[in-house]
């Protein structure tokens, strides 16, 4: 009986989906809509000033800002950074309790109720996108009404991170299954991509060569964040073009 269970789980290791994202830096204006969308969708706690001063900001998605050059030939570059969902993820093998794992769709999952808070994964992540609940966060009433029932509220001592809005993927899968089809391109979007005013963030199935995200990832402008580390991220960036005049 148990053997059967293992086999069915084994079969689930292959999936027709490989979720990925393309971020077009030529479109990104750095406006921050994605940051709030992510926080709203995923019950990410509100961090007070002193927490952020300690480097304990909990945003799953941040926008890195780079200054290049000096006045008046100065430029700014923005880089939205979220979990890169690496296929060779440095965070996964170091977890002593298998809280961080790779799911068949290519996502780096995080099992909150298994996490014991060693923070090894966070230390090992070159992108610094894993955030740890150093404090117990509260949502003063009635602010707690905004908490989404689809996702757990993580307690103190737990590591958390971007999930590509797995609850949305799950919902789309159920809908698709009910109709006996695959998820259509563009049907499921994480909160950040959904709200991005400039359409800089595009999400989809990399395993489908015709999906918008796969087509964009073949752009000559494509690069990956810290590509030389060999983590094979699921997130691809497209270089900002032009700007030759500084």
């Amino acid at each position: 009986m148990t053997t059967v269970k293992v086999e069915s789980a084994m079969q689930k290791q292959t999936s027709p989906y490989k979720w990925g994202m393309v971020i077009d830096l030529d479109r990104c204006t750095g406006c921050g809509a994605c940051v709030v969308a992510c926080q709203a969708e995923n019950n990410v706690p509100i961090c007070e000033k002193h927490e952020i001063a300690e480097g304990r900001d909990m945003h799953w998605l941040r926008i890195e800002r780079f200054w290049v050059g000096e006045y008046p030939d100065v430029r700014v570059r923005f880089l939205p950074v979220l979990c890169q969902h690496c296929h060779d993820a440095p965070c996964e093998p170091v977890c002593p309790v298998y809280a961080s794992y790779h799911n068949p769709d290519g996502l780096n999952g995080q099992v909150y109720n298994r996490c014991v808070g060693t923070r090894y994964c966070g230390n090992n992540c070159p992108y610094a996108v894993r955030v740890f609940n150093f404090y117990r966060h509260e949502w003063p009433k009635p602010l707690d009404n905004q908490l989404s029932p689809d996702i757990t509220v993580r307690s103190r001592g737990v590591m958390e991170k971007c999930t590509f809005c797995i609850q949305r993927i799950r919902r789309a899968k159920e809908d698709a299954k009910g109709e006996g089809r695959m998820i259509r391109d563009g049907e499921v979007q994480p909160a950040c991509a959904q709200t991005c005013p400039t359409d800089a963030l595009v999400f989809g199935n990399m395993a489908d060569p015709d999906s918008r995200v796969a087509r964009l990832a073949r752009s000559p402008r494509r690069f990956q964040f810290l590509e030389h580390l060999g983590t094979h991220p699921s997130v691809h960036y497209l270089k900002g073009g032009g700007r030759e005049h500084a």
């Binding site: 750095g30 406006c31 921050g32 940051v35 709030v36 926080q39 709203a40 509100i46 961090c47 952020i52 900001d57 945003h59 941040r62 926008i63 800002r65 700014v76 923005f78």
Partner: peptide, 9 residues
């Protein structure tokens, strides 16, 4: 949320 949103610049 807006107080905690880092100013982009």
């Amino acid at each position: 949320w807006l107080q905690q949103l880092p100013d982009p610049m």
